[in-house]
């Protein structure tokens, strides 16, 4: 869930300083330098003087209310819009050095309406970019099957279906597979789950996180849904009226909002929301000596504290047993949770 405090230091209920998690030896995958976009006839620029560095392999969510310029910013990366000022670099080369079509074939693009080509089968849809890149037929076929497996749509069943025969969630999975087909380093996603029902959306978000753990793409994801942003992002870019207001990890955006606007947007006062970003294993205490299970409900170490709180309140139990592979490895009480929350506010 969210991002992990996965180091060994995190046990014992103390949350580490976020800065310790900076990656070393960064190749900046995407870099915006003073990017501005003014549409002709518009009273104000859609994007104003945005400077941003997106690290290789990170999942960055661009969050903001409608009209804040987040989609415009995204679309400048694959040059669907051209900046009025400033420059954008991918892996340190300016994107205008390549032709737009060559650039786009190296970037995966997923949109809200999915946009699957209705006259092509699922397999043909996925094969579009590989065909544009001139891959040999066999390689394309293998890739299609591979990707369908990846998005959990069995190839034998789904290859020859048409988009109209798929549900909204299935269509977006195919959309995702299609975007990944050319094995791009960068993935651009414009509110991809916006048109999907809440239940399917949650499973698609899980899916995306699972894929990202495996594939480590650099993802730029636009949304106006704060919960979605908090759940998926390694880092969040908060935008307002064309400007970047904050660029930080989710927990930092929640606990240290840059201004009143961000505070309001993410509901920084909502402690319970903040708990959803912290894992149980961060807050739990080690097993007391001679511990014996006494009917405490169990919870996984990678579940979030919000879940844990809910469980404690629902069952009325004094503590939860943190269980990993059938072995209890720690305990969690309301006090532990309270202590962690206090640390977050002060930290």
């Amino acid at each position: 869930m969210g991002f992990s405090y996965g180091d060994a230091e995190t046990q014992g209920g103390v949350s580490p300083c976020p800065h310790k998690l900076e990656r070393k030896g960064i190749v900046s995958a995407i870099r915006f330098e003073h990017v501005t976009k003014q549409f002709p006839g518009a009273s104000a620029p859609a994007v104003l003087d945005c400077t941003l560095t997106v690290e290789d392999g990170s999942f960055v969510v661009i969050l903001g209310p409608s009209g804040c310029g987040k989609t415009t910013l995204l679309k400048m990366v694959n040059r669907l819009y051209e900046p009025t000022a400033g420059a954008i670099y991918i892996d340190d080369s300016e994107i205008r050095q390549l032709s737009a079509t060559t650039l786009r074939r190296q970037i995966g693009y997923v949109i809200q309406q999915v946009g699957l080509f209705p006259h092509m089968t699922v397999a043909q849809n996925i094969a579009v970019v590989p065909r544009l890149l001139g891959w040999p037929r066999e390689r394309i076929e293998r890739r299609v099957d591979e990707l369908l497996e990846l998005v959990e749509l069995p190839p034998a069943e789904y290859r020859s279906r048409y988009p109209s025969q798929l549900s909204g969630g299935q269509q977006q999975r195919v959309g995702l597979a299609r975007a990944l087909a050319g094995d791009p380093k960068v993935l651009l996603m414009d509110e991809p789950f916006g048109a999907i029902d809440a239940i399917t959306r949650a499973s698609l978000q899980d899916e995306l996180l699972r894929l990202q753990r495996r594939l480590k793409k650099t993802i730029l994801f636009v949304t106006h849904d704060v919960d979605e942003a908090l759940r998926l992002a390694d880092r969040i870019v908060v935008m307002r009226e064309g400007r970047i207001v904050q660029y930080d990890r989710p927990i930092a955006v929640l606990t240290q909002p840059a201004d009143a606007f961000v505070h309001e947007l993410v509901g920084a006062d909502d402690m319970v929301r903040q708990l959803s970003l912290v894992r149980v294993e961060t807050a739990m205490a080690p097993l007391p000596a001679g511990f014996r299970r006494n009917g405490e409900p169990s919870i996984a170490p990678d579940a979030d504290l919000r879940h844990a709180l809910s469980l404690l309140l629902r069952t009325g139990a004094p503590a939860l047993a943190v269980v990993d592979s059938q072995q209890p490895i720690g305990v969690l009480t309301l006090d532990h949770i309270r202590a962690t929350a206090k640390n977050e506010i002060e930290g």
């Binding site: 694959n78 669907l80 079509t101 650039l103 786009r104 074939r105 693009y109 949109i111 579009v128 544009l132």
Partner: peptide, 8 residues
């Protein structure tokens, strides 16, 4: 839009 976005 998607067709362009994919590099056609």
């Amino acid at each position: 839009e998607v067709a362009y976005g994919m590099g056609m």
